[in-house]
């Protein structure tokens, strides 16, 4: 099958498929313009278990993908044959879940003749910024925070990454989920904790700022989590009322404090002007506020994606895939899933 060439000015329609965890997501983009971005959430599937059950996630992906493809193409106003590329997350993530999206992507690539482009999920989170802020994103320092990741990365030019630091224990999203569950806020905990914290005093309780002065760009969150649990238990034992909103706000402030400080330090250290945020935790209101303020004070351009592009989605995979496609990259149909794929 002959493919029409990718040319300046012509549409470049790329399908993006994301099934690395508990969201089945399909999108169609034309360069950085989102034509369709659909998500079949599995929150209902995992809620009663208080966390993502990998086998259930994989089962749900198989049920969700077919109708999502139809709906995404209809929304985008094109057919499978109009696609110039098929981008799919190949890692990091749950291997069984990744393989479902990859099987679909490979089949679509084979049947349409459009090239397959394997995408790193973390690069997707970073390049999601291109949708709202255009393609000039480098040189920059990126903070990637999600349920599975908390890391600072230096991106001197597109697709080149230098890992500056990361969490030595829990990811930020994991800590949010655990504290939310402890406070009885349900699953997923992040958004619920965010809402509750708005009514609380962030300075009510002084929780530890782990590794704030460690002099590197690593994070640690397990100590903070323990401190919160210990505080609440001690207060209850002493017969004092615990104000959940204050606990939520103070816990959140401790995380945000360290993340803002280290991100700004890293940007200064690497001499960049742009700071990018990416990942589900970037949907957190306080993190966005504080990072914007700190960036403005220190003279950095702070960019983050719109809310629906922070959490896992297909558009970020499609955009990252488009960038790689336009550089001439292609992925073999024999590519494997890599559950612990690193940036680079």
């Amino acid at each position: 099958m002959t493919r029409r060439p990718l040319r300046e000015g012509l549409a470049v329609r790329v399908l993006g498929i994301e099934t690395s965890c508990d969201e089945t997501a399909v999108a169609v983009v034309d360069r950085e313009t989102v034509l369709a971005n659909l998500i079949a959430s599995q929150v209902d599937v995992h809620e009663r278990f208080g966390g993502v059950v990998p086998e259930l996630a994989s089962r749900a992906h198989v049920e969700a993908l077919t109708p999502l493809f139809d709906a995404a193409l209809e929304t985008a106003g094109c057919g499978f044959r109009d696609l110039d590329g098929v981008a799919v997350t190949i890692g990091p993530g749950l291997v069984g879940a990744l393989l479902v999206g990859m099987a679909a992507a490979k089949a679509i690539a084979l049947a349409t003749g459009a090239p397959l482009i394997g995408v790193n999920h973390l690069e997707g989170h970073i390049l999601a910024n291109a949708v709202d802020h255009g393609s000039e994103l480098t040189p920059s320092v990126c903070l990637v925070v999600s349920g599975g990741h908390t890391m600072l990365v230096h991106m001197p030019e597109p697709h080149r990454y230098e890992l500056l630091g990361q969490t030595v224990d829990d990811a930020a999203g994991e800590a949010f989920d655990k504290i939310a569950r402890f406070l009885g806020l349900g699953f997923p905990g992040g958004p619920a904790l965010d809402r509750l914290a708005r009514d609380g005093d962030p300075n009510a309780i002084r929780f530890p700022r782990a590794m704030a002065d460690s002099g590197d760009f690593d994070f640690s969150l397990s100590g903070l989590k323990t401190a919160v649990l210990r505080h609440v238990k001690a207060e209850r034992q002493a017969g004092r009322d615990v104000e959940p909103a204050d606990v939520a706000a103070s816990f959140q402030e401790a995380i945000v404090d360290v993340q803002v400080a280290k991100t700004i330090d890293a940007a200064r250290d690497r001499g960049v002007e742009t700071v990018l945020l990416g990942g589900g935790v970037v949907a957190n209101t306080r993190l966005r506020e504080r990072m914007e303020k700190a960036g403005a004070e220190a003279g950095f351009r702070v960019l983050f994606p719109s809310l629906d592009l922070c959490t896992d989605n297909g558009a970020m995979i499609a955009v990252a895939g488009t960038w790689r496609l336009l550089r001439g990259e292609r992925t073999s149909l024999g590519v494997g899933a890599d559950p612990s794929l690193e940036l680079g």
Binding site: S58, L65, D70, V100, A103, A105, A107
Partner: peptide, 13 residues
């Protein structure tokens, strides 16, 4: 699931 999903997507396209 890999075989089933590939078959579904092929038939769909």
């Amino acid at each position: 699931r890999v075989g089933v999903e590939a078959a579904k997507a092929l038939a769909q396209v």
